[in-house]
């Protein structure tokens, strides 16, 4: 096999790219290539399309949009979870992950060899298979009441999945959904401070010297995040 240096490969590839674009005509057609080094704020970093559909559907039931305002999906939580799973949390970077692996008591805590990202991937695959068998549809395509029934069964530990304990996955999914709804918007969830507005938390402020003794009074200022008041900006993890 002829060798090719990385540099010459890039040059060759680049030239091919330019000629391909040129052959397709107008500049407008190639607009997405205008930002080749940027990732769109909501572009999936970890989930594939099916996983993304599952997580969005589950988030919509865990924290629904209703008369009190936006739910987890409107607040960007699926995007938050995707970014968390693509980062150090998803890879369990700080966890002790050496064997031997044994099933322990409840008091001994998590003893699975799966990092969160792997747990999601296996659980979603298992759950969609379960839903296709039981409901003849993927989870995302089921009715709200059927979705709620599956989530409730997971919560009560009454669905046995092939690869992972269903309740462990449910607990993690609910925890991450809550995190996404209530953490600083710079992580991709809590968009427009939806979660903080729902509960009345004014955000990343740091001085209540006067207000703390104004008993029974509402705090008057709106929520603020660590990147400001816009509430929709995200930064890379």
């Amino acid at each position: 096999m002829p060798t090719i240096s990385r540099r010459s490969f890039l040059v060759a590839g680049g030239a091919a790219g330019i000629s391909a674009c040129a052959s397709r005509g107008t500049r407008r057609d190639v607009a997405p290539l205008d930002i080749p080094n940027e990732t769109r704020a909501d572009a999936p970093l970890f989930f594939n399309a099916e996983e993304r559909r599952f997580v969005s559907a589950a988030c919509a039931r865990l924290i629904p949009e209703d008369e009190l305002g936006p739910g987890a999906v409107q607040a960007g939580v699926p995007n938050f979870i995707d970014r968390q799973l693509a980062g150090p949390y998803g890879q369990a970077r700080t966890w002790y992950m050496q064997g031997p692996w044994r099933k322990g008591s409840e008091q001994q805590g998590y003893q699975l060899k799966f990092a969160p990202a792997e747990l999601y991937r296996l659980a979603i695959r298992n759950l969609d298979a379960y839903c296709r068998r039981q409901f003849h549809a993927a989870f995302a395509d089921m009715s709200n009441s059927d979705q709620d029934a599956v989530l409730t069964a997971l919560e009560k530990d009454s669905i046995e999945l092939v690869d992972v304990p269903g309740k462990t996955f449910f607990t993690m999914l609910l925890q991450n959904t809550t995190e996404g709804f209530l953490s600083d918007p710079m992580y991709g969830g809590n968009r427009d401070f939806a979660g903080w507005k729902l509960i009345g938390f004014p955000g990343a402020r740091y001085n209540y010297v006067e207000e703390i003794e104004q008993y029974g009074m509402s705090y008057p200022l709106p929520p603020v995040g660590l990147l400001g008041r816009r509430g929709g900006r995200t930064r890379k993890i």
């Binding site: 039931r61 924290i63 629904p64 209703d66 709620d148 989530l151 609910l174 209530l182 979660g195 938390f201």
Partner: peptide
């Protein structure tokens, strides 16, 4: 908000009732 919110006995862990 994530770790220091308190909810009354019997509140479901998710859904519209949790939100309320």
């Amino acid at each position: 908000p994530i770790l220091q919110h308190y909810l009354p006995d019997g509140t479901p862990a998710w859904g519209s009732q949790w939100k309320r």
